[in-house]
């Protein structure tokens, strides 16, 4: 039994499917995220697929700040993802609101709405940093998987 659990968890770490949500970012972060898909970075090497569907996703990658309009969409997307799942906040905006922090319509970082597992700082972060962030989220996924089955 223990062995099966371990190997299932290994599979989990080998096939994290990403859902990317642009939560009102300036598009700087989004361009860097999409750059990870290009042949230069080739995230499919790690089994990572950028899916467009919360039903299929394991990791939610959010860029940009939360505002009162999109916070509902954000929590909705998170609720539609089957567990175990992890959330990554990308960019200064996703972490704290960044340069938009003081704006009247900005609620703040992603962690105001969702439990964030990994923070990737930068404005925008390099694609390498984003890939690092996803890899760090895998440990979280494994841990969640073990806790669920226990």
């Amino acid at each position: 039994m223990e062995m099966i659990k371990k190997s299932v968890n290994r599979m989990r770490a080998k096939s994290p499917w990403l859902l990317h949500f642009d939560c009102g970012s300036c598009n700087g972060c989004d361009i860097e995220i999409l750059a990870c898909l290009t042949p230069v970075y080739d995230i499919e090497r790690f089994g990572i697929i950028n899916v467009g569907n919360p039903f299929h996703a394991d990791v939610l990658l959010v860029s940009g700040t939360v505002n009162p309009r999109n916070r509902k969409v954000l929590s909705n997307l998170h609720a539609q993802m089957p567990g175990p799942k992890a959330v990554i906040a990308v960019g200064a905006c996703g972490l704290s609101g960044g340069v938009f922090r003081e704006a009247y319509n900005v609620v703040g970082g992603i962690d105001k709405v969702l439990p964030v597992d990994v923070y990737v700082p930068g404005c925008p972060p390099k694609p390498e940093a984003i890939i690092d962030g996803v890899v760090a989220a895998l440990d979280k996924l494994k841990e969640l998987g073990l806790r669920k089955e226990a």
């Binding site: 299932v8 080739d42 090497r45 089994g47 394991d58």
Partner: peptide, 28 residues
Amino acid sequence: TARMQSRIGPPLFQPFYDVIKLCFKEPL
């Protein structure tokens, strides 16, 4: 496909990893 796009591509057994992972996800 990956090689044709000058990428390295996933491991050969990637489809099996995907399916096993999906099997143990929460059923919605």
